[in-house]
């Protein structure tokens, strides 16, 4: 049997989570290094008609379990289905998104399989000599990085947060193989049931999806000053973000928080105002395409990772930027 690298394809109510495609992108690199095939694993109800989509993002094969018991996520049936597939096909590597669902599921699956699991990896690569998966992740709130490996148990399992890996291109002309499997469970085998799901729009704001983020920290002095950041974000078609200090101060809620204990973002443009740039903040935004940092302190660590640094008062600089962008847009349109 050819070696394989597996990616869990996460979907909710028939909507894919982009982290699955980001992992297929990374999975392709790992599969090449291992001379292995890249496989997606898709579980859910009425998902068989969606099974080609992972192929378009790079999967050679897609394993599908389509069952009414998988209509919404529950640990037991999802873990049961995955464990059975892994035992049959024995992948070398198995990656999942470090989402609410993925963190819950990966812990259960790894425990059933008695294998190693590394959470929230930021770097994954195959060691040339040993052919083992090297899994690098921040620990202790991002103050240190650790590289972890799993010598003998299989598969080598890891989770990766959304937006940490880059998105591969979609190619709808790619062809792949779809393999269906049965779940083999009854409702009475499962000990949890959904009563209802209450949508909360305040939690559906996803800073991860923004292309432009203007983030503020302690240095902007007062929550009311976020108005200035919002104006700049509006001109750029972006959203406001915040450091942990700003969220702890109650200036913005957690859905806006960028960093180790907040959200990992990779926008095209990240503008920080009054954020010193502790490593816990950096790990959440260093993947941004362009970083513009504003801070009073010329020694602030945020300047080390910025493309452009502006030393001065954010409350003066931010409105000046807003004006400059507004003028530029006025000229071009």
């Amino acid at each position: 049997m050819k070696k394989s690298v597996w990616i869990f394809i996460e979907q909710t109510d028939g909507k894919f989570n982009d982290v699955s495609w980001e992992l297929l992108g990374k999975g392709r690199e790992l599969a090449t290094a291992l001379d292995a095939e890249l496989c997606g694993v898709l579980l859910g109800h009425k998902v068989i008609e969606m099974a080609e989509e992972p192929v378009y993002y790079g999967a050679d094969k897609v394993f599908v379990i389509d069952d009414p018991l998988l209509e919404y996520y529950r640990t037991q049936p999802y873990a049961h289905g995955l464990v059975a597939l892994v035992k049959e096909y024995k992948p070398e590597v198995f990656l999942m998104g470090a989402t609410y669902l993925g963190r819950d599921l990966s812990g259960a699956v790894a425990t059933h399989l008695k294998t190693g699991l590394t959470a929230d990896c930021t770097v994954l690569n195959i060691d040339e000599e040993t052919k083992l998966l090297h899994q690098t992740r921040p620990a202790f709130g991002g103050n240190i990085m650790a590289t972890i490996y799993c010598a003998s148990a299989r598969p080598q399992m890891a989770t990766v947060r959304p937006r940490v890996m880059s998105m591969p291109d979609r190619d709808a002309s790619r062809k792949g193989q779809i393999i269906e499997a049965k779940l083999g469970l009854k409702e009475t085998d499962i000990s949890t049931r959904r009563v209802e799901f209450v949508c909360d729009p305040s939690t559906s704001f996803r800073i991860e999806d923004a292309q432009v983020i203007v983030a503020g920290g302690r240095g902007i002095g007062d929550g009311a000053n976020f108005k200035l950041l919002k104006e700049l974000a509006d001109v750029l078609g972006g959203v406001v973000g915040a450091s942990r200090a700003a969220v702890d101060a109650g200036w913005l809620d957690w859905s806006h928080q960028v960093g180790q204990t907040g959200h990992t973002v990779r926008p095209r443009l990240y503008i920080s105002a009054g954020i010193s740039g502790a490593i816990q903040h950096q790990v959440g935004m260093e993947g941004s395409d362009m970083i513009i940092a504003i801070n009073k302190d010329p020694d602030a660590s945020i300047f080390k990772i910025a493309d452009y640094g502006i030393v001065g008062d954010a409350l003066e600089i931010v409105p000046a930027l807003t004006e400059a962008f507004r003028k530029m847009k006025g000229e071009s349109g």
């Binding site: 008695k114 490996y149 010329p298 452009y308 640094g309 600089i317």
Partner: peptide, 29 residues
């Protein structure tokens, strides 16, 4: 424990040469 730690290290600095401007030296506009 199936997982082992290969190494630990401080987070690496990003490989960019930032362009730093100072409002004390250059005009805001």
């Amino acid at each position: 424990s199936p997982t082992q730690v290969k190494k630990i290290f401080p987070p690496p600095p990003k490989d960019v040469t930032p362009e730093i401007m100072n409002t004390g030296e250059t005009g805001l506009d």
